[in-house]
Nucleic acid binder design. Structure first.
Length: 224
DNA sequence: CACCAGGCAAGTA
DNA sequence: TACTTGCATGGT
């Protein structure tokens, strides 16, 4: 069985058992972007509290957040954890947008994928996963998001090699899947759901996992 | 009580 | 280049 077949089977099984996930859980691309930074190494329920704080204060917009002092921003996002770090990171992003695009958020999101990605990665506080989350879920560009769950799930099911880094895993998906934003969107969302339900660090529940017995030598070989 | 969660940057050798 | 550490809240 080819890696493409393995991936198709993964996707079909996850979708059949869990249904569409309707990601990203946000109302606007701007909210996606803020959430992408707030959720760094943090449970999503904590991020929701932080986002809610900003929303109820009427601060969840480019202009409002840009005008907000960083110390005050830190106060609002406190439930998300690492609040001083994340407030600074959000400011870095907001400053970048203001400096290069003024208040034209649409122009920021309308950039081409390679240019946009490099630009995001050059901002302090935005790494590969945060950048790709913004590209895929805020800008609707076809890039596959790799996160801790993705890594752990693939390892547990022996689908990739031990020492695959972010880029290798991303290419493993993108080299063997159709280049479609909608597919990447749903695939990653399903992986996070599977991770939350069946592939926790301490409490793996492999009995009910839709990915049982998917390991193939071809997938493993193609990951190196 | 310990451990974990949808990372990233900075410091060390 | 390859490790290690700091950042911090809220749930299990």
């Amino acid at each position: 069985m080819s890696t493409a077949d393995t991936l198709q089977l993964m996707y079909a099984r996850m979708l059949a058992q869990l249904g569409p996930q309707h990601w990203w859980p946000a109302e606007t691309p701007f909210e996606v972007m803020v959430g992408a930074i707030l959720t760094q190494n943090t449970n999503w329920s904590n991020v929701e509290r932080a986002i809610d704080n900003l929303k109820r204060a009427g601060l969840l917009s480019l202009t409002a957040l840009s005008d907000l002092p960083v110390a005050l921003l830190a106060h609002y996002i406190r439930p998300a954890g690492y609040y001083n770090i994340k407030a600074g990171r959000l400011k870095n992003l907001l400053d970048h947008i203001s400096r290069h695009f003024g208040d034209d958020l649409q122009a920021f999101f309308d950039q081409s994928l390679p240019v946009f990605r490099d630009q995001l990665l050059a901002i302090k506080g935005i790494g590969p996963e945060t950048a790709d989350s913004i590209l895929l879920y805020a800008a609707n560009l076809p890039i596959f998001v790799v996160d801790a769950y993705t890594h752990r799930i693939l390892l547990r099911h022996q689908l990739i090699d031990e020492d695959c880094d972010y880029r290798m895993i991303q290419e493993w998906f993108m080299d063997h899947l159709p280049c479609e934003t909608g597919l990447y969107n749903e695939f990653h969302a399903l992986l996070v759901k599977v991770g939350n339900l069946y592939c926790k660090k301490k409490k793996p529940d492999c009995e009910a996992c839709p990915l049982r017995g998917l390991a193939t030598n071809q997938a493993l070989a193609d990951s190196r």
